[in-house]
Design a protein around this nucleic acid. Structure first.
Length: 516
RNA sequence: CGGGGAGUGGCGCAGCCAGGUAGCGCACCUGUUUUGGGUACAGGGGGUCGGAGGUUCGAAUCCUCUCUCCCCGACCA
C-alpha cells in the first residue's frame, strides 16, 4: 500500500514498538518532557496550548449546562477522608501527605522538616475533591430552594501512582471536576448522564476521538460511588483508554459530609450527589488516536495554530517580498471562521531553514502547513500541505497542492472542517473494525487476545452481571489474560443469549479489553 | 514494591569488561555551495560522563549508597 521510499519524520514506527513510538511523538511534537520530579512532567507550550484548547471547549460546554466554576483548597484535612469508608479505601494507597510547615538546617548543609513544626493534623494533597467540596455543599445547602447545587473546578490533583506514563498517568495531573447535589435520585442520575453525554460530545466532536459511553461494572466503580459511567476510547494498538468518568454517588457522600436540605414539608432529606471528571490524560489519547509515523496530528478544533504559513526564506533580497506576500495571505484569512470560531493562523517568521521548520510543524501536527516561495509569489499561488494526508503515495513525497492564493482563503474553512471530520472518521473506522461481537465461549475470547495478531482490539460479550465472590472470580479470570471490563455500552443491544462466564441467562453486553 | 534494562554536550549513541582527565551521528554557529526545497563541502562552539561517598598516584570506567527514566509484573478515577 505504502511506497517504500517515504522518509518518515520519526525514527520509530507504530507497528515496531508502540510504547517507544508514543514517547517519541511526545518528544518530537514538543508536547512535554520529564521534570526530574518523580512521575511529574513539564508540559511545554505546544502541549499546553492543546490543553488550553481542550479546556476552553470543555469549559464552554460546562458553562452552557449552567454550571459555574469555583475553586477549592489544594490541601484537604486527613479527617475528611475518614468519613467515607469506601472512598478512603480507594485512595489511601496513593496519597501525598503534608506533615510539616517549616524546614531547618540539618547541620550538614542540607535541610530537613523541623520536628517542632509538625502539623497537628496532616493535610492531604487532593487526589480528588469530593470531601472538601462536600463540606462546602453542606454549608451552602439548607433548603430545597438551594438545589440543585452545581459546581465545577479546574485544578491539579496528585495521585501517587506506582508506575507513571506521560499524560496517561502522571503523579500530578490537570483536570476538571464537576460536583453537583440534587434533591432526588432521579435528578442526580439525570445529571450523571448529562455530564457523560457532554464528555462524549466534546471528545468526539472536538478531539475527534470516537468513544463508547457506558456503565462500569461494580468492580471498576469509583470508590464510594453507586454508579460509575465512562467514555472509552480505543488507541491504535487496540488498548482501551478511559477518557472521562461520571459518577452517581447516591447519598453516601452527602451522609458523610452532612449535605441535607429541608423539603417542602419541612422534613430533612439527604442530597443525592454526582461527580465527573476529565483530565490531561485526554491529550495522551489524542496522541495515540491521531498520531502517525511522522508525529502528531492535531484535530483542527484543538490545534493552537490551525494553519501555519511558512515563508521559504533564503537570505536573498526577495525575502522581503516573500514575507510581505505571506502577510497578505495571513490577512486574507483574518476574517475567516472555521468550525464556529475565528481561524487561528501563525506566520512562522522564526529564522532557520525552511525545510527544517516544515518538518518540525509536521511533527507537531499543525493541521495545515502553507509554504510560500518566490515562485508561488510569482504565480499568485500557495503550496498547501494537509497534515492528515501528508504523502503522495505515487512518488513518496509530501503531497503539496498548489492553490491560487485568493482561492485559498475561501476554501480554508472547508479544508479545516474536512480534516476534523476525516480524522474522526479514520479513527472510528479503525476502532469499529477491531470490536468483535458474538463470541459465546470464553476460550474463543482468550484466543482472540492471544492469537488475534499484535493489536487484537476489544471483544463484546454477554454476561449475567454477577456480584460478590462470583464477580471476583470472573475478574480474576480476566486478570489472568491481562484483560479488564471497560463498560456496558449505553446503546448496545439488549442481551439475548447466555453468560459467557457462567452459562446463566445473560442480562447485558459488556466490553472486554486490555487497557491503559 | 518485585524482576529486567538504562542514565555520557540539545537529541540518539560508542567508550566501561582488561582504570590514565572524552568520541561519533544528527542538531547548533561561520563561510562557501544548492535553490520547488529534510542540498553539499570546509571550519568551529558546546559535555567531566545522573548525584553523593569510597578505592587509587590517577575513575566515565572498580566498590557502596542514592535519584530518575524505560519494559514486564503487582497496583491504579
Amino acid at each position: 500500500m505504502e511506497v517504500s521510499n517515504i522518509r518518515h519524520a520519526l525514527n520509530v514506527k507504530r507497528e515496531d514498538d508502540f510504547a517507544k513510538w508514543y514517547q517519541e511523538v511526545i518528544n518530537a511534537a514538543d508536547l512535554a518532557e520529564e521534570s526530574g520530579v518523580r512521575g511529574c512532567m513539564v508540559i511545554k507550550p505546544w502541549g499546553y496550548g492543546i490543553w488550553e484548547r481542550v479546556q476552553r471547549l470543555m469549559d464552554d460546554r460546562i458553562k452552557a449546562a449552567g454550571i459555574p466554576n469555583a475553586y477549592f483548597p489544594l490541601f484537604i484535612p486527613l479527617a475528611n477522608f475518614e468519613r467515607e469508608a469506601d472512598h478512603v479505601d480507594g485512595f489511601a494507597k496513593e496519597m501525598a501527605v503534608v506533615t510539616h510547615h517549616r524546614l531547618i538546617a540539618d547541620g550538614e548543609g542540607g535541610l530537613i522538616p523541623d520536628p517542632e513544626a509538625k502539623l497537628e493534623e496532616p493535610l492531604v494533597v487532593r487526589p480528588t475533591s469530593e470531601t472538601i467540596i462536600g463540606d462546602a455543599m453542606a454549608r451552602w445547602v439548607q433548603s430545597w430552594r438551594d438545589l440543585p447545587l452545581m459546581l465545577n473546578q479546574w485544578a491539579n490533583v496528585v495521585r501517587w501512582e506506582m508506575r507513571t506514563r506521560m499524560f496517561l498517568r502522571t503523579s500530578e495531573f490537570l483536570w476538571q471536576e464537576g460536583h453537583t447535589a440534587h434533591a432526588t435520585r432521579e435528578e442526580a442520575l439525570e445529571e450523571t448522564h448529562r455530564a457523560l453525554e457532554m464528555y462524549r460530545a466534546c471528545v468526539e466532536e472536538d478531539l475527534a476521538m470516537p468513544v463508547i459511553a457506558g456503565e462500569k461494572p461494580e468492580n471498576e466503580r469509583f470508590p464510594g460511588a453507586d454508579e460509575t459511567w465512562s467514555i472509552e476510547a480505543m488507541m491504535q494498538d487496540g488498548k482501551a483508554l478511559q477518557a472521562g468518568t461520571s459518577h452517581y454517588l447516591g447519598t453516601s457522600f452527602a451522609s458523610a459530609a452532612g449535605i441535607q436540605y429541608q423539603d417542602k414539608d419541612g422534613e430533612h432529606q439527604l442530597c443525592h450527589t454526582t461527580s465527573w471528571g476529565t483530565s490531561t490524560r485526554m491529550i495522551g489519547g489524542v496522541v495515540m488516536t491521531h498520531g502517525d509515523d511522522d508525529g502528531l496530528r492535531v484535530p483542527p478544533r484543538i490545534a493552537p495554530h490551525q494553519i501555519v504559513i511558512l515563508p521559504m526564506l533564503r537570505d536573498k533580497p526577495e525575502d522581503e517580498a516573500v514575507l510581505a506576500y505571506c502577510e497578505d495571505v495571513r490577512k486574507s484569512l483574518s476574517g475567516v471562521s472555521a468550525l464556529g470560531e475565528p481561524i487561528r493562523v501563525l506566520l512562522d517568521k522564526t529564522p532557520g531553514k525552511a525545510a527544517a521548520k516544515r518538518w518540525s510543524w509536521v511533527k507537531k501536527g499543525a493541521p495545515v502547513i502553507v509554504e510560500v516561495g518566490p515562485r508561488d509569489m510569482e504565480n499568485s499561488k500557495v503550496a498547501v500541505l494537509r497534515r492528515d494526508a501528508l504523502w503522495n503515495m505515487d512518488n513518496g513525497k509530501p503531497a503539496m497542492t498548489f492553490t491560487p492564493r485568493n482561492e485559498f482563503a475561501s476554501t480554508a474553512a472547508q479544508l479545516l472542517e474536512d480534516i476534523q471530520a476525516d480524522l474522526f472518521a479514520e479513527a472510528k473506522e479503525r476502532r469499529d473494525a477491531k470490536i468483535t461481537r458474538g463470541m459465546t465461549e470464553w476460550h474463543d475470547v482468550v484466543n482472540s487476545f492471544r492469537k488475534g495478531g499484535k493489536y487484537p482490539g476489544w471483544v463484546e460479550v454477554e454476561w449475567s452481571k454477577p456480584n460478590g465472590a462470583e464477580l471476583e472470580a470472573v475478574v480474576e479470570k480476566l486478570k489472568a489474560e491481562k484483560l479488564t471490563f471497560r463498560n456496558v455500552p449505553r446503546d448496545s443491544e439488549p442481551a439475548d443469549g447466555i453468560c459467557i462466564f457462567s452459562g446463566k441467562p445473560a442480562v447485558e453486553r459488556i466490553l472486554v479489553a486490555r487497557a491503559y
